[in-house]
Amino acid sequence: MEYSKLRTDLIPGVFGARGNTRSARSLARGVTVACLGTVALLLFGCRLDMHVQPKYLPYEPTDFFADGRSERQPVPGTVARGQLRLDELMFTGRENGVVVDKFPFPITRADLDRGRERYNVYCTPCHDYTGTGRGMIVQRGFPQPPSYHIQRLRDAPAGHFYEVMTNGFGAMYSYAARVEPADRWRIAAYIRVLQLARNSKIDDVPESERGKLTQQSAQQPSGQSMGQSR
């Protein structure tokens, strides 16, 4: 009688055979075993010790330190391996304490392309794609930065742009944490490109390239203009 009770409880209406027969009993037993097995499997599946391992992933909070951060600040003055910044020009934009108009490495076409890409990511929100300082964030109320095309900034040494990116200037925060030193130089080089482009005449362009220029202004490159087109 025990099994007949069990089986009807489990799956009502299906195993309601008349009489407590041997075949029905073994079937019910099979079902019981299967159910218990499934429950056991499900319980084993609930163990989470591999899902949540005793290690810290980036930014994971911790109870161990008072400020709740698992990521610790290095001791002040720590120099990471390979990051002893002895090259004054590369890391400060200065030589013997004076801001200079040179680049710490030769600027190639690849550097300019990289500079444009970084400029479009980090600078265009305020300085806009042509460097006039009318970016989207400025349109939303951020104080307008000076245009790169004013005489003061056209005369400014390359090291000045590097220094501004590194330390910030006026309302502009430092971008040192976001843009690596070499990329800051590439952006400075691209600012030079913007300045050059703004003030050149069609005669400055080699004749063989002029066709390309009119062609490009007719069709905007996708991706690059994404932020502007909206």
Binding site: M136, R140, G227
Partner: peptide, 13 residues
């Protein structure tokens, strides 16, 4: 990222 058109990498550096 949408209305202002800020690149993903501006924050997710």
């Amino acid at each position: 990222a949408g209305e202002l058109g800020i690149d993903c990498r501006y924050c997710h550096t």
